[in-house]
């Protein structure tokens, strides 16, 4: 009997959904807008993260060594830096490499090159370029040198200068901007998602409210709560599933257009991002759609099923 009941509920929910025509269409439209907002926010977050990562990538700290520093000591410092949890990467540039980089950079600057030749020796020291996992961590990396950390006095004596202190203001400001942008992005996303969910919720509530007389009749005929609620939930699932399909299809032309027009501005090609994350996005849309549909239906019908 249980299976028969489930079958009847599904068939009845499906029929009600199809026969309600315009009402079902209205729910799909509202739900699609909600899913569109949710997915757009995922895209905006992705674009924001990509831009922030670009900015983060431009921030670094360089440790310059004195000219006569020997390579094993520097490599020793490099390996101890790499063991720090805050550090994402360390690049070693030898004195010779620094000189050839300098020459290459100034290959058109005859005067500078001539001055360098007259000097007769390499005036540049070796350096270590350090990238932190997060910009806020540069300070603690700089402090690691100030306090000495696990480094011996010998190691520290070969350090000429660390450019963190010159860049501190810029790094701090970027850190504040990045954190602020992330927080603001989250708050705005949260509010927008909430608003669209509330709208969908109210729409489904209104549609079920319109059916209150029929719900009453079903009760009087002797149908139990589950049998009355079931078809509405099935309709909710259908609205959620169809809306997610509509939204996923709608995003194809939208992301192609944005990919063609806005990649430079946004920093990532949204269509490429969409293709790469298609399955996850589809699951998120389908899941959100069905969950919102079902929860709205269950809540909306609850009050009509009281005695």
């Amino acid at each position: 009997m249980f299976l028969t009941k489930i079958k009847r509920i599904i068939v009845s929910g499906y029929r009600d959904f199809i026969r309600s025509g315009f009402t079902s269409l209205a729910s799909i439209l509202i739900m699609s807008i909600t899913l569109f907002v949710i997915t757009s926010l995922i895209f905006i977050q992705a674009a924001l993260n990509s831009s922030l990562n670009d900015i983060k990538d431009k921030v670094d700290v360089t440790v310059y060594f004195v000219q006569n520093a020997d390579e094993p000591s520097i490599l020793n410092i490099e390996s101890s830096l790499k063991s720090l949890p805050e550090v994402s990467g360390v690049t070693y540039t030898s004195a010779d490499q620094a000189l050839s980089d300098f020459k290459e950079k100034h290959s058109n600057d005859y005067l500078t090159l001539q001055a360098l030749d007259e000097l007769g020796q390499n005036p540049l020291g070796a350096s270590l370029n350090i990238k932190a996992k997060d910009p806020s961590q540069y300070e603690s990396i700089a402090k690691y040198f100030d306090s000495g950390g696990s480094l011996s006095q010998d190691s520290l004596s070969i350090i000429d200068k660390i450019d963190y202190h010159q860049n501190k203001v810029v790094i701090d400001r970027l850190t504040t901007i990045i954190n602020g942008a992330k927080k603001l992005g989250f708050v705005i996303s949260f509010i927008l998602v909430l608003i669209s969910i509330v709208i969908t919720f109210s729409t489904i509530r209104l549609i079920i409210y319109m059916s209150r007389e029929e719900i009453n009749v079903m009760k009087l005929v002797g149908a139990d709560g589950g049998y009355i609620r079931g078809p509405f939930i099935v309709s909710g699932v259908l609205v959620g599933a169809i809306s997610s399909l509509v939204t996923i299809l709608l995003f194809i032309p939208v992301t192609i257009w944005l990919g063609n027009q806005m990649t430079d501005f946004i920093g990532i090609n949204l269509f490429t991002y969409y293709k790469a994350n298609f399955l996850q996005l589809f699951i998120i849309m389908l899941g959100s759609g069905i969950i919102i549909g079902v929860i709205s239906s269950v809540f909306a019908i609850h009050r009509h099923l009281q005695k």
Binding site: M1, T4, R8, M218, V221, G222, A223, D224, Y227
Partner: peptide, 9 residues
């Protein structure tokens, strides 16, 4: 529907 509600086959 009235029969389904009272779980008739």
């Amino acid at each position: 529907f009235a029969m389904e509600a009272i779980e008739k086959s």
